[in-house]
Every structure is written in C-alpha cells, then in structure tokens.
Computed example of a mutant assay.
Amino acid sequence: MLILLPPSEGKAADGSGPAVDLAALAFPELAKPRKALMAELGRLAKGRAATALTVLGLSPNQAAELEANRDLATAPTLPAADRYTGVLYDALDLPGLRHDAPEAYARAEARVLTFSGLWGVVRPTDAIPAYRCSGGVTLPKAGSVAKLWRQALTPALAPVVANGLVVDLRSSAYAAMWRVPADVADRAATVRVLHERLVDGVPKRSVVSHFNKATKGRLARALLVGDVAADTPKELAVALQDLGFRTETAAPAKPGTAWTIDVVVDSVA
C-alpha cells in the first residue's frame, strides 16, 4: 500500500541537520529538476519582493516566508516527518509514531509519499530545509510546477506503483503533479472528506478545509497503526469502516480512472 499526501503550507522553521543532499533523497533521479527549482526559488527570493510574492501566490503579510527560499542549498534540514506541520500532519503525528509506535513509523517510511512543489515527492525520513513553493505555482523560468513534475514523476513513480493499493489523499494542486496511470486505476482510491450538516432538516454536504485535513491525517495514521493490508478499494472501504470511519464507495466513472471513497464527517468530528 502507498499513501499519497499533500505537503503542508506551514513548516517547522530552521533545523539541526546538514544541508540537503539531493542524492540522498528518495528518488534521486529527480535531482536535476530539484536543483533547478532550488536555484530559481533562490533567485526569486533575492529579487524584488513584490514579484516573488505574486509568483508564489503569497500576500504581503507573508513576505517573511520568502526568506526560507534564499539559501535552500545551505540551510539546515529536518526529516520531512518533522518539517511538515499543520492540521493534517498534526493529526498524523509522525514524530509521535516514531517515538511511541516504531513499527507503525517504519510502515510510514515505506508507504507514505508526500508530494511537494519543490522536491516532487519525499519520504518521511528525507532531510529537507524549510521552503515555500506550492504545487500550483508557475515560475518565470521553469513554468508550471505541476507540469514539470508530471513529466518527471510519471517514470519515477512507475516502479513503486506497479503493485499494491494506492490511497490518494492529495489535494487537487498536488494530484495534478502525478495522475494515476490507467493500468493502476483499478487498485487506486481517491479519498474525499465530506462534511455533513443539517440545513433546515435536510442533510447537506460540502468540503471544509479543517475537517478535510484533520480526517485525512487521522485516516493515514489509522492505516499505519492498524497495519491495514487492503489490496483493493473495496477492501480499503471495509477496513476504514472497521476503523470507525463512515465511508461511501463509488466505482470509476469511466475505465482507467480511480475509485472514489467518500469519508463523511459531521460537525463533531
């Protein structure tokens, strides 16, 4: 089983590890685009702040976040498990697993892939510096980050998705960086989280960021702690129900596309 996650906009600052070693990161064949993006983000951060903020989709109040991109090649690092913070990663709590449930953390090392606008994909143990680059940006030189990574990740990920279930918890910006191949679709499940509430006595569903991220973090953690061994989307849906999640499963709308599993939460989730 592979569990695909988005990164978090929020990241732990600083770090205690040595500078990033591109050859030591998972999927070292991605070193060339990683190096090019690091260089462009560094140039952008050292240039006109207003331009950098616009390109990266940041507000003037977020200007301090540009500093992380200035010296990416020499900045101190942290494992991705510690670098990514925010609602999803707080609920997943990889550092807690590492301390309290080492077997579950070992499963995370093997099964969790975090997609990143800068790194493409990383595993929890990959040592990376703080940075700011979402998967939806278009850079002046590199162009669309999503397109760049789609071209690089398609061959890079082919061996790791050749067998087993793919559980896709990514947001749309990161789903655009790698699309489930048609020959993998029958064993891939896109998981959506829907918030259900009563409006004038009628159930209404919507996507609410907090519920979405927190539930995905809890779900990923439950799969790792429970050592769930589902091989198909249907088996995954049953396993999630056994773990206490309310699920609804939909078969692919057309051949070559992934299954959909909706996890429904209410206001007290």
Rank of each mutant, 00 (worst) to 15 (best):
G10I: 08
P124H: 01
T232W: 00
A31L: 06
N212K: 13
R192H: 07
G42L: 10
G15K: 01
D200K: 15
A258D: 12
P181G: 08
S16H: 14
W259T: 06
T85R: 11
R83M: 14
T114M: 03
T138I: 10
L88D: 13
L113Y: 04
K234Y: 14
L219Q: 02
A50S: 14
A152R: 14
R43C: 14
D93W: 05
G256N: 08
L94D: 03
A31F: 07
G136W: 01
D168T: 07
P6Y: 00
Y84T: 03
W178F: 13
V121C: 03
P140H: 02
L118C: 03
R218I: 01
A63V: 15
Q151P: 01
S134P: 10
A188K: 03
K141T: 15
G136I: 09
P255Q: 12
A75P: 00
L44K: 09
R179T: 15
D231F: 08
S116Y: 09
F115R: 06
W149R: 05
T247H: 13
A130C: 14
A19E: 12
V160D: 09
P252M: 03
V137N: 07
A214K: 02
P140N: 10
G226E: 10
H210N: 12
L243C: 08
V121L: 04
L78R: 14
R123G: 09
M177R: 05
P79F: 11
V238I: 08
R83L: 13
A146W: 01
G96Y: 10
E67W: 02
L72D: 07
V268D: 15
A52H: 08
E67R: 12
R187E: 11
A239G: 06
A152V: 09
